[in-house]
Simulated scan of single mutants.
Amino acid sequence: MPDSRPINIALDCRYLGPRPSGIGEMVAALVAHLPGMAPDCRFTLLRAADAAGPLSGAANVREVVVRAAANGPVTLARLPLAVDLTGIDLFHAPANILPGGLRMPSITTVHDIMWLTHPKWCNPSLWGRVERVFYGHGITRALGRSARIATVSAATRDAIAAHAPHVAGRLAVIPSGVAADFTPVPRDPAALARIGVPKGRRFVLMVGQGAPYKNHAMALRAFAAALGSRAGIDLVLVRRRGASGAGLERLAHRLGVAGRVHILPAVARADLVQLYAGAEVLLHPSLCEGFGHPVAEAMACGCPVITSDVSAMPEVAGGAAVLVDPGDIGDIAAALMRVTGDMTLRAALRQRGLARAAMLDWQACAAGYLALYRSVLAEQSPAVRLPVPA
């Protein structure tokens, strides 16, 4: 007899916590949309111990607190040691690595494969060697064992296919979106001053962690080359300070722009929206991105964007940004001079960015994952199938 119980889909939500991330944004969107899209399915959400309260109030959701870290040794070695996964029909691992010990079909979202192709872009320190082994193993397992591998951009799909051609047939592109609270707001000088931007200053904005692939040192050099003599414009970086932040401060001193470079820690979302609203331009010259959420967020807030002409950035920008060679200081500097000096260009970039951001929809992303779940489960025993909507 066919099993009449609801299909039980586990979504690993342990990236949802106090630290903001693009992966967390995606997981939050799936939690918000999936239960309502498939009311006849059951969703088991694996929640981190430091997550703030319940993740969902939907009737078809069960939440389980998992003490093991999402990127920890227990997860990599054998996740069922930390959580009972009995009765799970499909497991969705949304954060690059596939946990060990899973017996059910799985889908892994692989955002990028820099740990396999350019590990020094991620973390060049001694600890980075440990991380390289950890993530290299987890990503390689995901490519080898996942029933489907979702990517957040065609750029990542193509990078995986080039690195591991044998998995090309299991790849699916499901673009990320941008949250509704990233929206145009009036520039508030008092709020900007409270956040850490000196009152009355124009500024170029950068947003992102301090990893080498974010290319912050190159961007700082380009800022100094382009705007070092224009004392009315500052550079604001939203990122964790850390050792690399101190290095940027020393570089700013050597370049003669130290008093005009402001490194801020992670800020509240409303403050980030205000920074996007107040900036002359977002500068995002990354060497590689799985998606590049700051590009989408800035466009949604009406902030002009300068970003790289490589990896996923042109795909996300969709013709609405100025593209530069991230390895060419002169190219980045020329774009900064052009955009900050041309009010008409900034207005055009704002309008094009708003139109492009409106196409990046989290509900469409969730629908893409639900279709992928159906596809995988339909290949299993006939007793384990997701209902197909009329």
Rank of each mutant, 00 (worst) to 15 (best):
D3H: 15
D3V: 13
S4H: 14
P6L: 01
A10L: 06
L11F: 06
L16K: 07
G17Q: 00
P20A: 12
I23Y: 07
L30Q: 03
L34C: 14
M37C: 07
A38T: 07
R47N: 05
A51Q: 01
G53I: 09
A58G: 04
V61F: 00
E63G: 07
V64T: 09
A69P: 00
G72D: 04
V74Y: 05
V83Q: 06
L85K: 03
L90N: 02
G100C: 03
L102H: 03
R103I: 06
I107R: 08
T108Q: 09
T109N: 06
I113M: 06
P124A: 14
P124R: 15
W127T: 13
G128V: 12
G128Q: 06
E131F: 12
R132W: 10
G136T: 04
I139E: 00
T140K: 15
L143F: 04
S146A: 15
A147Y: 01
R148F: 09
R148H: 02
R148E: 12
I149H: 10
V152F: 01
S153V: 10
P165V: 05
P165S: 13
I174Y: 09
D181N: 08
P186G: 09
R187H: 06
D188W: 08
R194Y: 03
G196Q: 04
L205W: 03
V207A: 14
G208T: 11
L220Q: 08
R221Y: 04
R239E: 12
G247H: 11
G247S: 15
R250E: 13
H253M: 12
L255H: 09
L255R: 12
L264P: 01
A266F: 00
V267T: 09
V267F: 01
Q274M: 10
Y276G: 13
A277Y: 03
E280Q: 11
G290F: 02
A298F: 02
G302V: 05
C303R: 02
I306R: 01
S311C: 11
V316M: 02
A317S: 11
D325K: 14
G327P: 09
G330D: 11
A334W: 01
V339C: 00
G341K: 04
D342M: 11
D342S: 14
R346D: 03
A347N: 05
A347V: 01
R350I: 00
R350Y: 05
Q351L: 11
L354N: 01
A355R: 12
A367N: 04
L370E: 00
A371I: 02
A371M: 04
L377Y: 08
E379G: 15
E379R: 15
P387A: 11
V388G: 00
P389M: 11
P389I: 00
